[in-house]
Nucleic acid binder design. Structure first.
Lengths: 214, 214
DNA sequence: CCATTTCTTGGTCGCATGACCAAGATTCTA
DNA sequence: TAGAATCTTGGTCATGCGACCAAGAAATGG
């Protein structure tokens, strides 16, 4: 008998099932980050986890189902990390600073996860299940966009398209895993400071030339 | 007999050979941009080009050889476009502005090419031939880094790590193809203006608080 | 105009993959 | 502990892949 793996997990999973799923997802993360999307297969994931390949098919409907779970797990992990890091910032400038620095630190301490996520986001281009993955990305853009818009409404940020700035910032953030992989010795704290400083300069309302007519 | 496809093309290619190679590369670009890296195969490229699949194997040593040619062609195209666009800028600020706006316009008028390039850069993670592809990226980072460093030496830019800023800017640039794909109706000219303005604010030497001690 | 080189096709080969299945091992429950 | 539900294995299957090859078509040039 097959367990109910569908999108709607109406029933609680057994202890063993939950543990196995976590183990498989974790192995998938490591294989994805080490070998890339193209070379990631059930056989390799199973070998790395020390289990049979068929077991993955038992716990997940198909490859797409597994990858969606991987994305969901990593996103949840990152969301928790960032929420905790942003905390109760007094200003939007401060919240943005903490968001950026928190993300850099997350990349540093979860290198395999962010590399795997990047592989999945890039590797599913055009596929039908890519829709769900892409919607996760849209959600990230939307959250940043919302923060920027509120910051503008509170007069902390200058006038720019929040959507544009969110996409631009997210691009800078997504470049970080690759850079840390290419140059493992990078001074992460300094990188975080530089990045938050850079975007602070880019979005803050200038104190000079408050030129408004009328 | 097989043509000499190796990395060193010591001999000139025949007219037919050059035309075929261009046709195959162009078809590969379109398939990559439409279906993504994972679903791109010789069979699909050949079908899209209206030729036999074996013909690709005749003109290219293997898949890796073909993809390297695709990357080289797109890079050459982009290099030419950007060089022309930057032209003879008087200042580094102006050169950076033209680089950014030129890139946005390039993405707009070569959507398939930039999407294909993104698929190749992301899709070869961990592979051995990925080395050559990644070195192309390192070259892009290096060129931007060099421009930023010179701008600093001329006193036009504030103090930051050129390497860091190059990676950050390149990330923002690489986010553009995906955004144009996700929102085809984007006002490209406005996007270009916003992006160049944003990075101008981020890198220029502040006229306020010229705080230097001594 | 014929001989040689270049170009192209269609087919075959071995390989890796994801999905599936039957049967056995393990765990749970009453 | 006995029966039932769950978990796991190892195997088979069809599919799609890149590479390769033999043979013929087309272009080339002396």
């Amino acid at each position: 008998m097959r367990p109910r793996n569908g999108a709607i997990d109406q029933k609680a999973r057994s202890f063993i099932e939950a543990a196995r799923r976590d183990q498989i997802v974790q192995a998938a993360v490591e294989i994805l980050s080490e070998l890339g999307y193209a070379k990631t297969s059930f056989a390799r994931i199973a070998e790395h986890a020390g289990i049979s390949a068929g077991l993955i098919s038992y716990h997940f409907d198909n490859k797409s189902d597994l990858f969606q779970q991987v994305v969901a797990d990593i996103n949840a992990l990152m969301d928790g990390w960032l929420t905790e890091h942003i905390g109760d910032a007094d200003t939007y400038r401060e919240a943005l600073r903490r968001l950026i620095e928190g993300f850099v630190l997350f990349c540093d301490s979860h290198r395999a996860h962010v590399l795997a996520l990047g592989q999945l986001l890039a590797g599913v281009g055009g596929q039908e299940n890519g829709e769900l993955v892409r919607s996760q990305r849209e959600q990230s853009v939307g959250q940043i966009e919302q923060m920027l818009r509120e910051g503008q409404e509170h007069g902390e940020f200058r006038d720019f398209s929040p959507r544009f700035m969110a996409v631009t910032l997210l691009g800078s953030l997504e470049a970080i895993p690759g850079e840390l992989f290419a140059r493992p010795g990078t001074d992460v704290a300094a990188y975080a400071k530089e990045l938050s400083m850079t975007y602070d300069l880019a979005v803050r309302r200038s104190r000079l030339r408050r030129i408004t007519r009328g």
